[in-house]
Design a protein around this nucleic acid. Sequence first.
DNA 1: CCTACCGATCGGTAGG
DNA 2: CCTACCGATCGGTAGG
Lengths: 200, 200
Amino acid sequence: MARTRAADYDERREAIVEKAAELFADKGFEGASISGLAAACNTSKSLIYHYYTSKEELLYAVMSSHIDDLLDAVNNLAIAQGKPAERMSALIHEFMSIYVGAAARQKVLLNDLRSLPDDRRSEIVLKQRSVISAMDRLLAGVQPALAKDKHRLRAATMLVFGMINWTSNWYRPKGPVSPDELATLATALILDGTKGYKDP
Amino acid sequence: MARTRAADYDERREAIVEKAAELFADKGFEGASISGLAAACNTSKSLIYHYYTSKEELLYAVMSSHIDDLLDAVNNLAIAQGKPAERMSALIHEFMSIYVGAAARQKVLLNDLRSLPDDRRSEIVLKQRSVISAMDRLLAGVQPALAKDKHRLRAATMLVFGMINWTSNWYRPKGPVSPDELATLATALILDGTKGYKDP
DNA sequence: CCTACCGATCGGTAGG
DNA sequence: CCTACCGATCGGTAGG
């Protein structure tokens, strides 16, 4: 009979990927080493390779669960009720909440996509496009004039993602502005900022 | 008499740093190699080290001239006339123009600061803070209600930088939206988005 | 004795 | 789950 899997297999696997997320976020994927990860986990390189077949596979694990969380948020929103402005507010607040709860993974997702192997990367990119499309539709609902020019709409969507994605680089949730306050500020910028939109 | 410096010394030095900017932007500082840079320049590693003492010094050269360009833009604005809204519009357009004209350097500045040695990094960070402070003051002029809460003001400033900095990750100047159109769209978001601001 | 550059190789460390 | 290693490539420097 085959040996049983260690009782704490899943916990260990999760602990490794979480530490990897922190190291990758801190030093970048290329700047971080498996040796360093092993040391941070108080274990050996071989143990890491027992749980993940390659450094890239670890990177994929860091990103995969996180993009799924973001995708869940937009899918839940798709079936929810409410006015466009309220739905936009809800999504921005939800995104900020996810970003704060998984700051390292969010940073890795934004910075190290190029280090994924092609097939893994295109899988993640596909999911990112779903998230972007959802924001497109939401923004079109908030400001119908924007919906008439899909290139401008997409540009506005990316400016919105810029606001919230860039927070990974400066925002500290324990600082003077709470995540909810920041989300409220960003929502106001988006809603009031698009309100005055006229066809160019 | 000492031999004269090669007539094309400055051109060569500039060509190397420009190629380095492209490689660093593409692969990240840690992911790029001096060997690869030498190959891209059709020359030897030794030639690279003749012009720059270390890989980090090259990174500094990439960032230094670029942050100086950004700083010049805000300093020129400081002595310029005009209403707050017009000054904001002018700065956003000027930033977008600089970003587009030095896309690789801009990307490197945003992504690879952590790889600079401490003293070089703090020099760059100091200049970045000047740029951020200028945006703080500009935003306070546009919406005086924001100026009363410096933490919210700073958060709003960083959201604005998020919009324009994030463009490095998606914007293609040869696409359907011109740099000026994008700057106009971003300016409208900022000006209208802050117009409705009330004390919380 | 300077600057400009080459081919070859250094000591260390990466992922595996 | 560890120690002991590998082929390769890293940033940087030697002699000429």
